[in-house]
Design a protein around this nucleic acid. Structure first.
Length: 506
RNA sequence: GCUCACGUAGCUCAGUAGGCAGAGCGUAUCCUUGGUAAGGAUAAGGCAACCGGUUCGAAUCCGGUCGUGAGCUCCA
């Protein structure tokens, strides 16, 4: 009877119930349940929390096992690999300070601050050291500390970035660390029970990365890698990468003689006869779809007077990205956006509320000075023809129109088989207009997404200087994402350009 | 812009104790062959991205400029 009351009952989802003595570790429980289960499980999920396998069980609970096939399981697996890599780097180099080392889609990375530069030839060496650590099968131990203790621990180690991270956490919060061998790292966890669980590792490439992604802060050295529980899976993944390289549009563009780039114009694509054939077909399709969706086509000039750009706000807020020229002693700018031109088109006419919404579409050639390091084939250029449209509408038409634009964008991407995800970009630091306008515009966009039941993430502070936007991020063949289409809501341009229509009440 | 790597014929690349610049594919001409990126022969094509330095001598070492590639919070 006493025996009974000492046991705790654990329901393992999709497996059954197991009773064990209190204090039993999750891993032991799994062993008792099934060897296979113990071997494949990387962590378990209790409610919404994922916990380590070497957490003691003290109460009755329900848990779900996570294996490599679960996204969350793979994350745990790869996060542990990042710790092992950090340990290896610390073993091999002096004066290493750690940044962050999360798991990412298909792998992991870790950022290091060290005086010596890591070269591509060093990666195999680091890999070897990782394999040693894996072979040692070091257990990962979770240690919980108070905030003050944690700050002391990491400042004693000279880990200034970790200290900064801890300082950003709440005053009273408990800080967790993970230790394997003599390596200790600040980490929320969870982790694999021991390093020996890692199998097929591969360090892929290295790159610079600003601390916290902020170009005003120091640049750290980032190593990317991946890991799989089976060599075969790693092989497949590497093959897939090779396969994707063959589909790289830059390679296809050259081989099919579609377009080229030249030193004489970095970021300015040259389209060849074959490329133009494709382009014209796309344009024909574009025209047909836009006509059907109620758009009228316009075309506005590429070079316009400085006054226009001052009026639109580009002069103050977008100048760094613009190109300039002089005509007859006067300043002109090459357009980076089509909006001001479209405003002038609207202004040239006289419209009644009955004419709204007025949908003006344009294939506008724009030029923008993008940072040299961001250029990439046709995906990131300094001049491109934008499939652009400006819709002039009544306040009560906003949500319907935005939804229509959304559907049109989706239609195009869907036809060409693009996967995308949606971000809602909010007010940036460098911007104009009142809080109230921004609030109103952001809410309107958000409402459309909610009504259409579209999953999205918020990209704080990444809106245009004149308004918030819904961004479509497309995936390329290599799984990288690029912001392409955007739907922007702008209450300011019409005001700045003094655009009017005749309302119902005259 | 910043970090690291790279920059050799149209394309893919080889060429390290610094000593006269190479291959495959492609191109041109010719031959062979009735078949869907066929075979053979010959040829053209590079001021080694550019500028400067070290050296008797540099593609090869050093510096600068330009360009290309990977990446620059998928959060401890």
């Amino acid at each position: 009877m006493d025996n009974q009351s000492q046991k705790v009952k654990v329901l393992i989802k999709d497996w059954g119930t197991k009773e064990v003595a209190p204090g039993t570790l999750v891993l032991e429980l799994l062993h008792q349940a099934s060897g296979k289960l113990a071997k494949e499980t990387l962590a378990v999920k209790v409610g919404n929390k994922i916990i380590d396998l070497n957490t003691p069980i003290n109460n009755d609970m329900e848990l779900k096992v996570l294996t490599f096939d679960d996204a969350e399981g793979a994350q745990v697996y790869r996060h542990t690999a990042s710790h092992v890599m950090a340990q290896a780097v610390k073993d091999l180099y002096a004066n290493v300070r750690l940044g962050i080392g999360p798991s990412i889609r298909d792998g992991f990375y870790y950022d290091f601050d060290l005086t010596q530069a890591i070269n591509p030839e060093d990666l195999p060496k680091i890999e070897e050291q990782m394999k040693k650590i894996i072979k040692d099968d070091l257990p990962l131990e979770r240690i919980e500390l108070g905030r003050g203790e944690a700050i002391k621990l990491f400042s004693d180690m000279g880990e200034k970035y970790k200290v900064e991270l801890i300082e950003d956490l709440d005053e009273g919060s408990t800080i967790s660390c993970y230790r394997q061998g003599d390596f200790i790292d600040l980490c929320a966890g969870p982790h694999l029970p021991s390093t020996g669980r890692l199998k097929a590792i591969k360090l892929l490439n290295l790159a610079g990365a600003y601390w916290r992604g902020d170009e005003r802060r120091p640049m750290l050295q980032r190593i990317y890698g991946t890991v799989f529980p089976k060599a075969k899976l790693l092989e497949e993944y590497l093959q897939q990468l090779e396969e994707a390289k063959r589909r790289d549009h830059r390679k296809l563009g050259r081989e099919l003689d579609l377009f080229s780039f030249h030193e004489e114009g970095p970021g300015f694509p040259f389209f060849h006869p074959n490329g133009i054939i494709i382009r014209r077909e796309l344009e024909n399709f574009w025209r047909e779809e836009h006509r059907r969706a109620g758009y009228q086509e316009i075309e506005t000039p590429i070079i316009l007077n400085r006054k226009l750009w001052e009026q639109s706000g580009h002069w103050d807020h977008y100048q760094e990205n613009m190109y300039f020229t002089k005509i007859d002693q006067q300043d002109y700018a090459v357009k980076p956006m089509n909006c001001p031109g479209a405003m002038l088109v609207f202004k040239a006419g006289m419209y009644s509320y009955r004419d709204l919404p007025l949908r003006l579409a344009e294939m506008g050639l724009v030029h923008r000075h993008e940072k040299s390091g961001t250029l990439h084939g046709l995906m990131r250029v300094r001049s491109f023809t934008q499939d652009d449209a400006h819709i002039f509408m009544l306040p009560e038409q906003i949500e319907d129109e935005v939804a229509r634009v959304f559907d049109l964008v989706d239609k195009f991407y869907h036809i060409f088989g693009f996967e995308y995800n949606i971000e809602l970009s909010t007010r940036p630091e460098e911007s104009m207009g009142s809080d109230e306008m921004w609030e109103k515009a952001t809410t309107a966009l958000q409402n459309v997404l909610i009504k259409k039941n579209i999953p999205y993430t918020i990209n704080e502070g990444d809106g245009a200087f004149y308004g918030p936007k819904i961004d479509f991020h497309l995936q390329d063949s290599l799984g990288r994402t690029w912001q392409c289409g955007t739907i922007q809501l702008d209450f300011q341009m019409p005001e700045k350009f003094d655009l009017n229509y005749v309302a119902r009440d005259g």
